[in-house]
Each structure stands twice: as C-alpha cells, then as structure tokens.
C-alpha cells in the first residue's frame, strides 16, 4: 500500500515535470527554480563554499576583485564573496519565516471568516483592508522600529504586511467555493464544520495560494533588504545583503563599486528567481493567463 502510493507520487511528479517542460510556462518556472536551487544550496553549504569567514577581516580593506578575493573586500577587510554567500542564509531565513507567519495567520483567518461571513467578516475585513492600504515597506519600518532588531522581530514585522494578501485571496475563494454542491453534499452527509472547511474547502482553494506564496517570498526578500538598508534589520557584522548594499553605496563615489554591486546582484537574482517561478506556476495552474486571444 505504501509502496503503491510512493509509486503514484513519483509517477505524478515525473509527469508534472514533463508537463512543465512541455511549454513556455514550464521553461520559465524551471529557470526560476534553477536560480532558487542555486541560492538554496549556497545557503545550506555556505561554510564549505565561502573561502573566508564573513565576519573576520581577511585582507586589506577596499581591495578590488582579484584572485584572492573574487569580489574584493569591503572597508573592514571582509571578503565580499563570503558575505555574498552567507547573505543568502539571512535573506532566505527571514523571507521564509515571514511568509510562513503571514500564511499561518492569513490562511486560517480567511478560511474561517470566509466560511462563516456575517458581522465578523465585516470587522476583520475592515481591519485587513486598513493594513493593506499602508505601503508595505513603511509599515514594516514602523513595526521593526518598535520591535527592534533580531531575526524573529524582522520576520514578524514583514509578516504583518503580507497577512492581508493571504486573507483576501483565501476569503474570496472560500466565498465562492462554499456554495459549491460538493460542500453542500458534505453538509448533507453530516460532516462537521471543521471537516467541511479542512477537507472540502481548503484543498480547493490551496492551488491559488501556492502562487501567492512564492510571489510573497520574493517580496519579503526585498522588504528585508530594505529594512537592513535602512539599518533596521540585522545587527552588523552579520552578513546581510541589504546592510552590505547600504554600506557599499557610501564608497561608490570613490569608485569602489564591488561592495554595493554584488549584494545588489544577489537581491535582483533571487527576487527574479522567485518571481519567474511564481509566474510559471501561475500559468501552470491557470492555463488561460498566458494565452493570446
């Protein structure tokens, strides 16, 4: 039985990959996925890949890219390449923790409120809408300033910005799915409300969430970089792209471009990776999106 279901999973997985490769949306998702896998491997094996410690001076300050320091060193003499590698850890950790918190609050809230509706729905939607109207970064700055630095605090302040996204997507989906006949069928066979919500409604609204999820991680990485750039993120000298970018831009004027350039490229690449992956998934789940009329 177990073997059987394993086989089915692997065959489904392979057919999924084959389908993804079959058209342009698949290529896009795959390209995004490749970038992501590279960054994830980088984060996992940072100590092996990085030639130097990211928090100890390893050469003369402000030396340009060379064979010893392929991305140069910064004003403290830290190896930029090592910080580039280690920076992926911080970016991915904070972005995924933030997204998990946001999804963990937004999805159940949207499910329950969307299912029951009524006065609670009005109140919570109003609160969510008012959060949603704030520009994301500004709200995150405000919360981060109150909470102070630290991985959990930063994740939390980013998460707050994204809760309404999940809430709104899930709530509107639930509102249409709850009137489906199979939900009424579940009620007619005597299913409990919790069973109806988790077994009949949740699986039917989940596909739309996967896209939002990968899109949000990209956004969260940007917000995290933004916070660190403004000095509200992680305490230096912990390697962080946003901080390095802010630090490096002071030296652009003296033509020491490598300090700001490489962290910037890292942020662009990883955000691009997530966005392409999300868009590819989106086209896979909603085949009509990329279609010409």
């Amino acid at each position: 039985m177990v073997e059987n279901s394993n086989q089915m999973l692997s065959s489904r997985l392979s057919s999924f990959i084959r389908e993804m490769l079959g058209d342009s949306s698949g290529i896009m998702a795959l390209a995004g996925l490749t970038i992501l896998i590279i960054f994830i491997l980088m984060a996992l094996f940072a100590p092996i890949i990085a030639p130097y410690s990211p928090v100890q001076p390893s050469g003369n300050p402000l030396s340009p890219p060379s064979w010893h320091h392929i991305m140069g060193t910064d004003n403290m003499g830290y190896d930029v390449f090592s910080r580039f590698i280690y920076g992926s850890r911080m970016a991915l950790t904070i972005a995924s923790v933030a997204t998990l918190i946001a999804a963990g609050i937004g999805i159940p809230l949207g499910l329950v409120v969307g299912y029951f509706g009524g006065a609670v729905d009005r109140v919570i939607t109003m609160i969510m809408d008012s959060v949603y109207t704030f520009p994301g970064l500004i709200l995150a700055i405000a919360i981060a300033a109150v909470l102070g630095p630290g991985i959990i605090n930063i994740s939390l302040s980013i998460a707050v910005v994204y809760i309404p996204t999940y809430y709104r997507v899930i709530r509107s989906q639930v509102a249409s799915v709850k009137n489906e006949l199979y939900v009424e069928s579940a009620y007619s066979i005597g299913a409990k409300t919790s069973t109806i919500i988790f077994k009949y409604i949740l699986p039917n609204v989940l596909p739309s969430i996967i896209v939002v999820l990968s899109m949000n991680i990209a956004d969260a990485i940007m917000t995290e970089a933004g916070l660190s750039f403004l000095g509200l993120g992680i305490t230096p000298p912990t390697p962080d792209w946003g901080y390095d970018l802010a630090n490096g831009q002071q030296f652009l004027i003296s033509n020491d471009w490598w300090m700001a350039f490489f962290p910037g490229v890292a942020i662009i690449l990883i955000v691009l990776g997530f966005s392409m992956f999300a868009e590819g998934l989106n086209e896979y789940f909603n085949p009509n999106i990329g279609e010409k009329r």
Partner: peptide
C-alpha cells in the same frame, strides 16, 4: 437520510 443532487459534476469534491 440523504440527498442525490442534480449535477453529478459539481457534487463530488474534485480533490478527493
């Protein structure tokens, strides 16, 4: 007691 609905396409959960 139970019910049989009109539309068999819509009355089965597609993910079950």
């Amino acid at each position: 007691f139970s019910i049989i609905f009109q539309d068999p396409m819509a009355s089965l959960n597609p993910y079950m």
